[in-house]
């Protein structure tokens, strides 16, 4: 009886999450994977096993073009987030004297995550638009005479919006990594005659690599799969891979091609995750 009860508890605690993962993660992957080998035939598509959809993705330049653009945008978003988040997190952990100020500033970065993503992206439209807040300010301050249309509906607007939206995912892991570094390491380094810059380069930076890797992975993968920013603030040259997948499942009614594209995207994201995982692990080994 007790054995059964213990068994039941085990089934519930482990079984439900396991079933969840199988039903909502693995089965959909398998379905998408299966579809990717099917053939499109008007009006829909039929079961098949052929690699034509994958071949199309690599021979028709439009898919590679969008894929490269998406990689570029995601990389720029990650780099911009890192450039802003690292100094900020560094200052919070090592330079900010007041614990209260530190908590408040940290919360200020995290707080926007509680506001709807759609709303935050939409607000950038009203800031960057031709008759928007930024243009009104520039004209009021006398920097420009006429409103400019260079801020909205282009790749710059997408990178800005995505950086703003995903930057908390860069700040959080870097902050955590920096906070974990014992302060006496920097003192020891200084005692051994290293300059602050050498200490940063040889001690702090290597020890915070796992945080950078985690932040980079998060911001990169989130931007990589985004389709709201191109829709709201992107211009005619702002088509990203998620939008193309949406088109294949929607207007083009070509689920097999859309599935093949999803699988390619999944492979790219998984490679980045495993790469960052390896980087994180090797830096941890190096630290010991």
């Amino acid at each position: 009886m007790t054995l059964l009860r213990r068994h039941l508890a085990g089934v519930l605690v482990l079984g439900i999450p396991l079933a969840w993962i199988v039903i909502f993660m693995l089965v959909p992957y398998a379905i998408i994977g299966t579809y990717s080998f099917w053939t499109k035939t008007y009006p829909t598509f039929q079961p098949d096993f052929q690699f034509g959809n994958y071949a199309t993705l690599f021979t028709d330049p439009q898919y590679l073009q969008v894929l490269l653009r998406t990689l570029k945008i995601s990389a720029l978003v990650s780099v911009a987030s890192l450039a802003l988040a690292y100094p900020f997190a560094y200052w919070l952990v090592f330079r900010c004297r007041s614990a209260g100020v530190r908590t408040w500033l940290y919360m200020a970065v995290i707080a926007p995550l509680w506001v709807s993503y759609l709303l935050r992206a939409y607000i950038w439209k009203t800031i960057l638009g031709t008759e928007g807040i930024l243009n009104s300010f520039l004209m009021w301050a006398g920097f420009t005479d006429a409103p400019s249309d260079i801020f909205l509906y282009n790749q710059f607007a997408m990178i800005l919006t995505l950086t703003y939206i995903f930057i908390p995912f860069m700040v959080m892991p870097i902050y955590t990594a920096l906070e974990r570094i014992p302060p006496n390491l920097a003192e020891a380094s200084a005692d051994l005659g290293q300059t602050p810059w050498q200490t940063f380069r040889k001690v702090t930076l290597p020890l915070s690599t796992p945080g950078i890797a985690a932040g980079f992975t998060l911001t990169f993968c989130l931007s990589f799969g985004d389709f709201i920013a191109p829709f709201l603030v992107g211009g005619p040259d702002g088509n990203l891979i998620a939008g193309v997948i949406q088109t294949q499942f929607g207007s083009a009614l070509n689920w097999p091609l859309g599935s093949a594209l999803s699988i390619v995207m999944l492979v790219i994201v998984l490679s980045i995750v495993s790469l960052s995982d390896r980087l994180e692990r090797s830096s941890r080994i190096g630290a010991h």
Partner: peptide
């Protein structure tokens, strides 16, 4: 457009991909 539907949508998608 029937069978030609794909040719039209594909061309428009290619324009957007540029």
């Amino acid at each position: 457009l029937g069978e030609r539907f794909e040719a039209y949508t594909n061309a428009w998608n290619a324009v957007k991909a540029q």
